[in-house]
Amino acid sequence: MFVDYYPGKTLLHRLDVRAKLAAFTALMVLLFFFTNPLYNLFLALFGIFLLFYLGLPTHKISSILKPIAPILLLILLITAFSYPAEDFAIPAAKVVFYKKGWFELSSGGVLYGITLVLRIFSMVIFSSILTCSTPMDHFLQLMKISRLPANISFLIITGIRFVPTMQKKVEMVFNAQKVRGASFDEKGLVNRIKAYIPIMVPLLVQSLYMSDRLAVAMLNRGYGAAARQTSLEEIRMAGTDYIFIILSLAVVVMGIYLRVQGIGRL
């Protein structure tokens, strides 16, 4: 779900991070307004369109979607069997395919399952689009200019900054185990997860050690010397960004209207 920045020059890349967050929030809200899969299907297709618009290579897209596929399938199955027909309002959802005791497979259950699947699918896609089109730097700047206390935003920023470092460490420990004959590829998921356990210990120890060094390095650079720190650059909003924010608002208002009218229910 959390995908690296993918450089490009599309409109999405150029938009201010705030405008993008507004649109993102609007889409997220919309996803939860409707239970009828048709509406979420529309949103999901819109998401897929954007993915291609960004120019993401297919292997990257599949790397986003592959890991969630089994979860989606599971959700579909469980939902389909756990909502009886009487829970639904519209006729199309009231068809019962199979019933034995409390165990009931209804068209509504299937449809609702599809809605949930599309919801999660779209959430993954939209958040990927957001992170793909926005450099980490912009998020960090946003944090700086928002009213988050300086300490907290620094904490988050430093945390993010050291994610690649920790990733490297994980890989190194894996390699260290491989050269001593451990095999991760052959034994399946459980063993892979098991292999993480011995990694957690040195990683934890190392990160404690690293945090100590970081604290020293921060003091060494005068962190906390002045009450107010200089900020170097600030992200700026342009005309298109305002238009985007207004559009997002409009879409949400429209969604609320449709919902009140009872459209999009199951």
Partner: peptide, 23 residues
């Protein structure tokens, strides 16, 4: 463990910014 900035400029600026010097 002594680099904080995402890019070079930001990192060198970290110290002076902490002292609240003008931009």
């Amino acid at each position: 463990t002594q680099i904080f900035g995402v890019n070079v400029k930001e990192d060198v600026a970290f110290g002076p910014c902490n002292f609240g010097l003008p931009k």
